[in-house]
Amino acid sequence: MDEDTNAAVRRFPDRSRAISDRAARDEGFREMCADLATAEAELRKWSTSTVPRREQRIAEYNVLVDELAREIETTLDASVVPFPKR
């Protein structure tokens, strides 16, 4: 797994297999994982910053990280194929 996909695995460790499988076949999903990794890196950067707009940027990146995580989770949930009822 690459670092981008690892960002999703860190967020959803119990779904690492599903993340890996989906990333192997879905470029859009890989891009979501890359966006999450980038947003998390920016959040870490801003968390150590001392510039005046620090708090605003932290809040923005927290929202972005949460939204991307929800989007990844929704995509993974849509990948689950339920067993037919008997």
Rank of each mutant, 00 (worst) to 15 (best):
R54G: 06
P52H: 05
E42D: 09
N6H: 08
P84N: 09
D77S: 14
P82I: 03
F83A: 11
D77V: 12
V9D: 06
D14I: 00
R54S: 05
N62C: 03
P13Y: 13
S49Y: 15
A7G: 11
D21S: 10
R44S: 09
A69W: 02
R53I: 12
R17P: 00
S16W: 06
A59I: 02
V81A: 07
T74W: 08
V51E: 02
E55F: 05
D21T: 11
R54F: 01
S47W: 03
R15M: 15
I19H: 10
I58H: 01
A37V: 00
P13T: 11
T48F: 01
E3D: 10
A8I: 01
A69I: 00
A69Q: 02
L43A: 03
L64M: 14
R15H: 11
T38R: 09
A41R: 08
E31Q: 13
L43V: 07
R10G: 06
E71Y: 15
M1C: 07
A7C: 09
R53F: 08
M1L: 09
R17L: 09
E42P: 01
G28Q: 03
L36Y: 00
S49E: 15
S16G: 14
A37N: 05
A59N: 08
A23G: 06
G28S: 13
R25P: 11
I19E: 04
D26A: 05
R44H: 00
R22A: 00
P82C: 04
D2Q: 07
D4K: 15
A23T: 00
E40V: 03
R25L: 09
M1G: 15
D4S: 10
A78T: 08
E27K: 15
T38Y: 06
D21M: 05
A37D: 04
A24M: 02
R53E: 13
E71I: 08
A41S: 13
V65T: 05
E31W: 10
T48I: 07
R53D: 11
A23Y: 07
G28T: 00
A7R: 09
A8T: 04
F29S: 02
R15N: 11
K85G: 04
R22S: 02
D66E: 08
D4R: 07
M32L: 15
P82W: 02
M1F: 07
F83T: 07
T75H: 11
E27S: 10
F12C: 09
P13S: 14
A7S: 13
M1V: 15
T74G: 13
D4G: 08
P84D: 06
R17W: 06
N62R: 11
E27I: 15
P52T: 07
S20R: 08
Y61A: 00
S16Y: 10
T48H: 01
A69R: 03
P13W: 04
P84H: 11
F29L: 01
L68M: 03
N62D: 09
M1I: 15
Q56Y: 07
T38A: 12
E3W: 01
T75Y: 09
S47I: 02
A34Q: 15
D35F: 03
A7D: 13
L64W: 14
M1N: 08
V81F: 12
A37K: 06
E67C: 00
